[in-house]
Amino acid sequence: MVTPSIGIAIYPEHGQDAETLIKHADKAMYQAKRAGKNNYVVFDNVPQ
């Protein structure tokens, strides 16, 4: 069984260029994985 873990970053709120958006989406994806997989997370600008 395959389950998705998806990280979402939205232009322009989470970054003005592709590199920043991908970095933030990657952070959100790892948060989704920690939350139990088969999940999605929208990037949050609040430092953790």
Rank of each mutant, 00 (worst) to 15 (best):
Y30T: 10
M29T: 13
M1V: 08
D17V: 15
P47C: 13
V46Q: 09
N39I: 06
Y11C: 06
N38S: 06
I10D: 06
H14T: 00
D44E: 08
D26F: 11
Y30G: 02
E19I: 15
A18Y: 08
A28S: 02
G15R: 15
K27V: 13
V42K: 07
P47V: 11
A32H: 05
E19A: 15
Q16C: 12
A32D: 08
Q16L: 10
D17S: 12
E13D: 09
I22L: 14
N39H: 14
Y40D: 02
V41S: 02
I22D: 01
A35Y: 11
I8K: 01
H24L: 03
A35N: 09
S5W: 00
N38F: 02
P12L: 08
Y30R: 05
I10R: 10
I6K: 04
P4H: 10
I6Y: 05
P4W: 13
A18I: 13
Q48N: 06
A18M: 12
F43R: 00
A32T: 12
V2Q: 03
G36A: 06
I6T: 13
Y30H: 06
H24I: 09
I10A: 09
F43K: 00
Q16W: 13
Y30K: 06
E19V: 15
V2S: 10
I6W: 01
T20N: 05
V2E: 04
D44M: 00
I10V: 15
Y30S: 06
A35E: 08
P12Y: 15
I10C: 14
A25D: 08
A35D: 04
H24A: 01
G7A: 03
N45L: 11
A28H: 00
I6D: 03
Q31R: 06
K33S: 01
D26Q: 07
G36H: 07
P47G: 07
Q16S: 11
I10Q: 09
P4L: 14
N45M: 12
K37M: 08
K33R: 09
V41H: 11
I10Y: 00
A32S: 13
N39E: 11
R34V: 04
P12I: 13
G15H: 14
K37F: 04
Y11A: 09
V2I: 14
D17Y: 15
K37P: 00
K33Y: 04
K23C: 10
A35P: 05
R34D: 02
A18N: 12
G36Q: 06
Q48C: 09
Y11M: 06
H14N: 15
G36D: 02
V41E: 07
Y11S: 12
